[in-house]
């Protein structure tokens, strides 16, 4: 083991064998909480984390995805209810057409569109398209704006 200097303490650093990263030989350098302490401790406002269009998009995608994932049981329950009986169907329809139901649907559509747009951009990236700095910046802006357009279109459609 090599002692890694830093932050006034000695941490156990990686040993000299790096062949297999997943058998636990590549051990922790510094616990996450400790690592951030150096910055959190500044008795001053820490530097504003840098936000690019692509990093904004990435976190939007993650949060939208989490939101959709957590609402899966809701969709499934509504679907199940609507198929089970006439009464259940009416119940679901009434909820969806209520004000809160519409707002909820709007949120779900926004999340789906955001997740979809960001995902599409990632898929193109996987094919090696649009990864240069300039293209990536532009496509990130486009994908950031996309869900808002969809929501706007939906609102216009409901009127």
């Amino acid at each position: 083991m090599v002692a890694v200097r830093g932050h006034g303490k000695v941490y156990n650093g990686p040993c000299s064998e790096y062949q297999n990263l997943f058998m636990g030989r590549y051990t922790s350098v510094m616990p996450a909480r400790e690592r951030n302490k150096a910055h959190l401790l500044i008795g001053h406002r820490p530097p504003r984390p840098w936000l690019s269009a692509a990093s904004l998009l990435s976190s939007t995608q993650r949060w939208a995805g989490l939101f959709l994932a957590l609402s899966t049981p809701y969709f499934l329950y509504s679907f199940d209810l609507s198929l089970r009986s006439e009464a259940g169907f009416t119940q679901v329809l009434q909820w969806v057409q209520s004000l809160w139901g519409r707002l909820w649907t709007l949120a779900c559509v926004w999340a789906f569109a955001a997740h979809l747009a960001a995902g599409l951009r990632l898929l193109l990236g996987d094919l090696g398209l649009g990864l240069d700095r300039e293209m990536a910046r532009r496509s990130a802006w486009a994908a950031n704006l996309f869900p808002w357009f969809v929501v706007l279109a939906l609102l216009i459609g409901w009127r």
Binding site: S82, L83, S85, E86, F89, L93, Q97, F112, G157
Partner: peptide, 21 residues
């Protein structure tokens, strides 16, 4: 598939239970 379903029901009036099932 998600987009297909969405486009499929877009602009259509809400169905009744029988049509839905």
């Amino acid at each position: 598939y998600g987009s297909c379903i969405a486009i499929c029901w877009m602009g259509r009036p809400a169905p009744d239970h029988a049509a839905w099932t």
